[in-house]
Design a protein around this nucleic acid. Structure first.
Length: 117
DNA sequence: ATGCTGACGTCGC
DNA sequence: CGCGACGCCAGCA
């Protein structure tokens, strides 16, 4: 494993740490996490980290991460596409047409909530 | 081996 | 102000 890929691995782990901090019933976005980690243009990698999260640690609440519009863009990557919505609804988050209702109200921004890392 | 594809978001024109 | 291009780079075909 070269240095660059170990950096990426580190990035993944930081993403997972942040995701683990998301409280129940709250959601955040890929971009917010990316910005929080100082990599504003790596939102895509955050999504990729979510994909990898399943096999790394299934307990990571990947369902609490949606895109910046509040859409459940990653639901197809769960064992069952309905799984993501179901998990959120179980936490009291209402979903309609794959979109989080009252998204702004439920939005959990690591920049404000964690303030620094 | 090598090339393409994405759980996105920002920047440029 | 709308649309297109690019950055990011691990996994898979």
């Amino acid at each position: 494993m070269n240095e660059r890929s170990s950096q990426s691995q580190l990035f993944f782990e930081r993403v997972w740490d942040v995701v683990r901090c998301i409280p129940e019933g709250k959601v955040t976005s890929y971009g917010a996490i990316a910005r929080f980690l100082g990599a504003a243009r790596s939102a895509r990698m955050v999504g990729y980290a979510m994909n990898a999260s399943h096999k790394h640690d299934p307990s990571i609440p990947a369902h609490r991460v949606v895109n910046r519009l509040g859409l459940l863009s990653g639901k197809n990557h769960f064992s069952n596409p309905q799984r993501m919505q179901h998990l959120l609804e179980k936490e009291g988050v209402l979903i309609k047409d794959d979109k989080v209702q009252e998204f702004e109200k439920l939005f959990w921004d690591p920049l404000t909530e964690l303030e620094s890392f």
